[in-house]
């Protein structure tokens, strides 16, 4: 209950600032560093796969991972059996 908050140790505002920054910046770094062509590449890859296999867009997962000096693109989907 908020009326008992005065009993808790008061959080220093600088610590709060640091925590908030760490969260927002790690989120922004992953979004901002993706190349401009990534959305289009994803769309085309999905279209190619869907041409050969009966898969919906949400069944194909494509993600980009950034390492120190290179990036990888990871694509995951389950190949349905032909006889199903």
């Amino acid at each position: 209950m908020s009326i008992f908050n005065f009993l808790l140790p008061k959080k220093k505002s600088a610590n709060l600032a640091k925590e908030r920054l760490q969260i927002i910046i790690s989120h922004e770094r992953t979004n901002n560093t993706a190349p401009d062509f990534l959305p289009q590449l994803k769309k085309e890859l999905i279209a190619v796969i869907a041409k050969y296999m009966p898969l919906q867009e949400d069944q194909i997962n494509i993600q980009m991972h950034r390492q120190d000096n290179h990036s990888t693109i990871e694509m995951n989907f389950v190949v349905p059996n032909a006889d199903e």
Binding site: K12, S13, A14, N15, A17, K18, L21, Q22
Partner: peptide, 11 residues
């Protein structure tokens, strides 16, 4: 504790 420290910013 009112201002981000040098270490905080560097982290």
């Amino acid at each position: 504790g009112e201002m981000l420290s040098v270490q905080d910013i560097q982290d």
